[in-house]
Amino acid sequence: MQKELVDLFTQKAQAVSAIVKPVGSLKEAYAYAADICLNKDACQLLMSGCGEAVSDAAADLCAAKSADRIIAAPQFEGKRLKELKAACDKAGITLLTEGMRGQLAGIDVGFAVADLGLAETGTLVVDSSSAEVRLSTMISEINVVVLPLSKLRKGSYDAEDELSAIIRQAPSYMAFITGASRTADIERVLAIGVHGPLELHILLWEDS
């Protein structure tokens, strides 16, 4: 049953161009995020418009990027934060847990843990009540999200009680995320990364 759900989730998420990988532990997930951040094309910011003929005012945003390599993981604290920090330090990556508003030109990698997964649509549910989480999952060029498999449900109806519990913690800001930011507004041609992440990586964590 669990395998069927994982397969369904994987198939649906991949169908919207998400990259889906299993990880054995959170540590492995940290190493993956650091690796992605490090090996990401040095000029990938180009993809988000730096190299394009933008107006002078829009070009000024480039100067706002503060460090070479950034991972933002605002949900993290305590032991998990320490471990993630260690992985970042080792790779020479700056780790941020707050201050996303100072990074609106874009950060390399946003790193988060999902609250639920919905297999039928390949959807991640991320409680984004923290403004930092909302931003890190939007302004990152690569969004890396860990989905603990104990939180994988078949569809939205099956997860309804849990979804309801999230929105009842008022105030709350709950996000369903399925694939990367996309548009087909010009000639119906699919273009990824119009406002948010250019890539979504989902790390399936066998947590139980």
Partner: peptide, 26 residues
């Protein structure tokens, strides 16, 4: 809008919009 000559490549146009609009959110 940008006072720059734009290519008609859709992927590029989308990125131009991304940059121009990011500023507007800020």
């Amino acid at each position: 809008v940008t006072k720059q000559k734009q290519d008609s490549d859709i992927q590029k146009l989308v990125k131009v919009a991304r940059r121009e609009l990011r500023r507007k959110y800020v």
